[in-house]
C-alpha cells in the first residue's frame, strides 16, 4: 500500500516540474525499491498513475465545465462525450505506470533480490 501512495504522491510532484513520462520513472523506482510480486507491482503502478491522471483530469473538468472535454472526445474518438477522454487518460496513465512498476519489479527480482534468493538456496539442506 505504501508503494501505491508513494507512486501517486511522488508522481504528482514529479509531473509538476518534469515531463509527463516522469510518472513512469516514479512508478519504476518505487517498485524497484519495494515490491512483493509482479501482479502487485503492476497494480500499484497502474492505480497510482491512473489515480493521479484521472484525479487531476477530473479536477480540471469540474473546474472548467465539460464542453471542451466533449469536443476533445469528438476530436479523438469521434464521439462527443466527456467520459471517453477521461477514460482514455486514466487508462493510458495507468498502463504506463503499471508497465513501469512491473519493470521495476522484474529488475529488482533479477538483480536486487538475487542475493537474498541465493542466500536462501545455500541455507536449504
Amino acid at each position: 500500500m505504501i508503494q501505491l501512495l508513494l507512486i501517486a504522491i511522488l508522481g504528482l510532484l514529479a509531473q509538476l516540474i518534469l515531463p509527463w513520462w516522469s510518472l513512469a520513472l516514479v512508478a519504476f523506482l518505487v517498485c524497484l525499491w519495494r515490491s512483493q510480486s509482479a501482479s502487485q507491482a503492476f497494480l500499484y503502478g497502474f492505480l497510482g498513475a491512473a489515480l493521479v491522471w484521472l484525479g487531476y483530469a477530473l479536477l480540471i473538468y469540474l473546474r472548467t465545465g465539460g464542453d471542451f472535454t466533449g469536443r476533445m472526445g469528438e476530436l479523438l474518438f469521434k464521439v462527443n462525450n466527456a467520459a471517453l477522454p477521461m477514460l482514455a487518460t486514466a487508462l493510458l496513465g495507468g498502463l504506463v505506470g503499471g508497465l513501469s512498476g512491473l519493470s521495476g519489479f522484474f529488475i529488482r527480482q533479477a538483480f536486487g533480490n538475487q542475493v537474498a534468493s541465493h542466500a536462501a538456496g545455500h541455507t536449504r539442506p
Binding site: P19, W20, W53, I60, R63, G65, T69
Partner: peptide, 16 residues
C-alpha cells in the same frame, strides 16, 4: 502521452 497528460496535455487548455 503528452496530449492526454492532465499536467501538460489538452486538459491544461481547459479554461474557465
Amino acid at each position: 502521452g503528452p496530449l492526454l497528460s492532465p499536467f501538460v496535455g489538452f486538459w491544461q487548455n481547459a479554461e474557465s
